[in-house]
Design a protein around this nucleic acid. Sequence first.
DNA 1: AGCAAGATTAGCT
DNA 2: GCTAATCTTGCTA
Length: 228
Amino acid sequence: MEEITKEVVPLTEAFYEQPTLELAKALLGCLLVRESTEGMAAGYIVESEAYIGPEDRATHSFNNKRTARTEIMFHHSGLAYTYLMHTHCLFNVVSGGEEKPEAILIRALEPVYGIDLMRKRRGIEDLTKLTNGPGKLIKSLAITMGDYGCSMTKPPLYIAKGFCPESISAGKRIGIDNSGEARDYPWRFWVTNNKFVSRHQKSELVFFQNPPGRADSSLLPGGFIHLT
DNA sequence: AGCAAGATTAGCT
DNA sequence: GCTAATCTTGCTA
């Protein structure tokens, strides 16, 4: 454990300053780390969803709605945006920069460190069900509303480099059926074929980090290759 | 002060 | 797949 903490270094603010759709993909494979008195727990981010400001009907800050809940979204990138949903707390990373209320929901992790601690916090044994959902992963890492507004660039809650996914899938976001046209935006991203994602869904787009036999110029705007 | 809605989950049919 | 659980937020009066 001593050795692990030396190697795991928080990503700096510059990382969070990329456009939200880029950041949502860049976060895949990164290590989300939680330190606490109980010990360290961490997992690779394998699923994310982008929520993009005033124009996105599914976003809490749609129409620049600024309330006690959404306030942190108007602040600088790289802060934690936590909020309550039914009986669960959900965790987002603020993006977009000052006065641009955007955020990325972290929907699933692949458990890496502190797995026994995660099992204890969740009260279940099954590894594949430990962190395969936004409400499950915050319980595994003991993230709470107390983390609202904290910076992700330093302990006790931060994101560090992990692995580089070979392929990223994209599809519709989950659970926003009442969001009009926004419900169909392909702003959910996941590590292709990763078994820790929250839901299986048809991939509408696929992004290859290193497209086999293709130059970058063959990619569609946004770096996507259409499947259909 | 009252009320409706919700970026979910677990458990059961 | 369907539904209850459970409670905060934000909006209206």
